[in-house]
Design a protein around this nucleic acid. Structure first.
Lengths: 152, 152
DNA sequence: CTGTGACTTGAAGTGCGCTTTAACTCAAGG
DNA sequence: CCTTGAGTTAAAGCGCACTTCAAGTCACAG
């Protein structure tokens, strides 16, 4: 057991399927050296990148954004704990926001539905995050934005 | 303006695209009467169903589960505020759970990453929901279950 | 009666995050 | 040397939640 991992080993240690790891590599989220026989060999540091990816997904960040974040890591040296801390902190706001939204939704469910106003007319549920400010005629309400549905 | 809505009206009032409303109908989440010319006419009560659908999605419930929930509404009469309250309450646990998980993740990000242990080895992030109890070799960690990946 | 805009359908397309498949090569043990 | 399990690729497929398209119909104002 040396300090380069095969894809199977990385898969077991990270809990991520080999096919997903290859997929991440194609998207540029992780990288691997190759043996003479073209097999992937992962540095131990990749384990941390994979951990970061899965955690970020839980926060609700897309792989594309995760890639962008990972790209901001220093390419020259192995990222330090502070590097990781900085990246993780950058999700902190989103995490807070999601928690806030869900908590608000819970409170609204208690208050708003109980009162029978579940009509999304002027109910607070209508525009939960204050995120949307009049764009289009309909309320265009609720839900994490569907990634620019109409030409924006 | 009578008390039956066209699909365009329902769309504007609910903030949901007509195509999505037709899609919901195909899945059996909402229903519509038809005019002589085969156009949809929605009873006002459908507005409330659509509201419930969107709110449920925010809680993280799939359309299939939402359909199952809506199926439990009385078919004979227009659902009462109590009916809606009961349904909404049924999501309450999920909402709480999601909030709990995200809050835990936030705390872990503060504590765990700061300490540099972002390795998902024995970190608390490893198994956030206590949901998984040894199934397979890898950690099989994190993330909302991917809907039975292996034959279960 | 005619034009216009809203509506109808089924089928195909989209985006995300993967998984599966097929055909193949590599690595290591006996 | 041979077998076996782990690895390789490109391409296709999948599940979800819709959207878009094409071709046609309806409703209503003028």
């Amino acid at each position: 057991m040396m300090d380069l991992l095969t894809i199977g080993e990385l898969s077991v240690r990270s809990g991520v399927a080999p096919s997903a790891l290859r997929y991440y590599e194609r998207l540029g989220l992780i990288r691997a050296d190759r043996t003479g026989g073209n097999q992937r060999r992962y540095a131990r540091a990749e384990l941390r990148r994979v951990a970061f990816i899965r955690i970020s997904q839980q926060v609700g960040v897309s792989l594309d954004e995760i890639r962008a974040a990972l790209d901001s890591l220093p390419g020259s040296r192995t990222p330090s704990p502070q590097d990781w801390e900085r990246l993780s902190a950058s999700w902190r706001g989103r995490l807070d926001e999601r928690i806030r939204l869900l908590t608000k939704l819970r409170d609204d469910l208690d208050g708003c539905i109980g009162c029978g106003c579940l009509s999304l007319q002027r109910c607070t549920l209508n525009n939960p995050g204050d995120t949307l400010a009049g764009e289009g005629p309909g309320a265009r309400l609720l839900l994490p934005r569907p990634a620019s549905p109409d030409g924006e």
